[in-house]
Computed example of a mutant assay.
Amino acid sequence: MTKTRADSLPGLPLCGRDPCLPLHRRRSFLGRAAGLALSTSALWQVSRIAMAGPLQAGLTFNATFPQSSGPGRFLAALSHSPAGSAHASVAQISPAQLPDRAADPQSLIVLSNQELFPPAGTPHPIPSHIAARLQPVAPLLVNPYFVVVGGSSGYQSMEQLLQHARQNPGAIRYGSWGAASLGHKYGAVLAKAAKADMAHVAYSTLSDLYAALDNNEVDWALGTGIGPAAAAHRAGLIRYLAIADAARDPRRDVPTMAESGGPDGIYFRAWLGLFAGAGAQGGTIESALPLLRAAVADPALRRLYPSMPPLEEITPSALQIYMQQEPSLLPRSATHYQNNPHN
């Protein structure tokens, strides 16, 4: 059984008064749950994508992850959609090629917020001086996180949960799908904003995490409205307590963080964004936007991937807003993004 220590994560020490609790390993039926929705664990473990090639002749999606992964399936579906079939293809690159592609102004790169804003002490896939010159093109997939509790939990609101945490320092435990994961980082951000001392427990998979919630091993965690979290919710293992976004999800009658008594202005999301390489000019961005907008407007593709943003958000400025709203415990490594006329 492996222990994750707080002092192994500089800048991310909020694991209660003691080192982070042991990593649990458990098999559950959720590990066998299947569906078309993206898995958030796969989203961050395998989400480096680069697009390159002669833009006038079409876009080549060069991916560093298997096509069987969530992002890989999404890009394959995008390239085979009516919008992309004549203009896009998918190929693979190695992770070592990513910095060079990011430095190429003719390249288009897909990055997750985990990669663009990694917690302190974790590797950054792109040098900061290159990342700072990336040009936002548009968001591709956006999944807001919910605060989730066990199906039999007595907590009915964020106010009740956080009040208990303040009154009992270190007694409330939140789980995540790994040390330095978004679940760990965002949990620490929430604890800091709420002025509450909470312990962190790292699990090896999302399936293990949600089984632990059902068994009351931890008090709360984060989960999206898709993938393993949705399967656990349908099975009654977890319950959505609040959405960490600016507005309610129209598909679920769940209050926002502020409405439920939690801190206001905190947004926890898993997103993939498309960026042009460092110093890119307008032509690189213009080559991608029509394809993306046509794909988002495709009803068949949207049925498969409802996490695609609405058509009006397929803009550089929309991606810039997601970046600006990204919670961080430390100053971002990439804080300056050049303006372009395509917002």
Rank of each mutant, 00 (worst) to 15 (best):
M1K: 03
M1E: 14
T2P: 03
T4M: 04
S8R: 14
L9T: 03
G11T: 09
P13T: 05
L14A: 12
C15K: 09
C15S: 09
R17F: 06
P19I: 07
C20K: 02
L23Y: 07
R25W: 05
R26C: 10
S28M: 04
F29K: 06
A33G: 01
A34Q: 15
A34L: 06
A37K: 02
L38S: 04
S39F: 07
A42C: 15
R48H: 15
A50D: 03
A52Y: 05
P54Q: 05
L55M: 09
A57T: 15
T64K: 02
S68E: 09
S69I: 08
S69H: 11
A83V: 02
A83L: 03
S85T: 04
S89N: 02
I93Q: 13
A96N: 12
Q97A: 08
R101F: 05
A103Q: 07
A103Y: 04
D104A: 02
Q106I: 00
L108T: 06
I109D: 03
L111A: 09
Q114D: 06
E115W: 12
L116E: 12
L116T: 07
P118I: 09
H124M: 10
P125K: 10
I126M: 02
P127N: 00
S128W: 06
V137I: 15
P139L: 09
P144N: 11
F146P: 06
G150F: 07
G154P: 08
S157F: 02
E159W: 05
L162P: 00
H164E: 09
Q167K: 15
P169Y: 11
G170R: 06
Y174D: 03
Y174V: 05
G175M: 04
W177Y: 14
A179L: 10
A179V: 12
A180W: 09
L182D: 05
A191C: 07
K192Q: 13
A194H: 14
D197C: 11
M198D: 08
A199W: 05
V201H: 12
A202N: 06
A202D: 10
D208Y: 11
L209G: 06
V218N: 09
W220N: 01
W220F: 13
A221E: 11
G225D: 14
G227E: 10
A230W: 09
A231H: 12
H233P: 03
R234E: 13
I243R: 04
D245W: 08
A246P: 00
D253T: 14
V254S: 03
M257W: 11
A258T: 05
A258Y: 06
P263K: 07
R269L: 00
A270E: 10
G282H: 10
T284V: 13
I285R: 00
E286L: 03
S287R: 14
R293V: 00
R293L: 00
V296S: 01
V296H: 01
A297P: 01
A300Q: 15
L301K: 02
L301P: 10
L301E: 11
L304S: 04
Y305F: 15
P306L: 08
P310L: 02
P310W: 07
E312L: 08
T315G: 01
P316I: 09
P316V: 03
L319A: 02
Y322N: 07
S328Q: 13
L329H: 04
S333C: 11
S333E: 08
N339D: 13
N340I: 05
N343T: 08
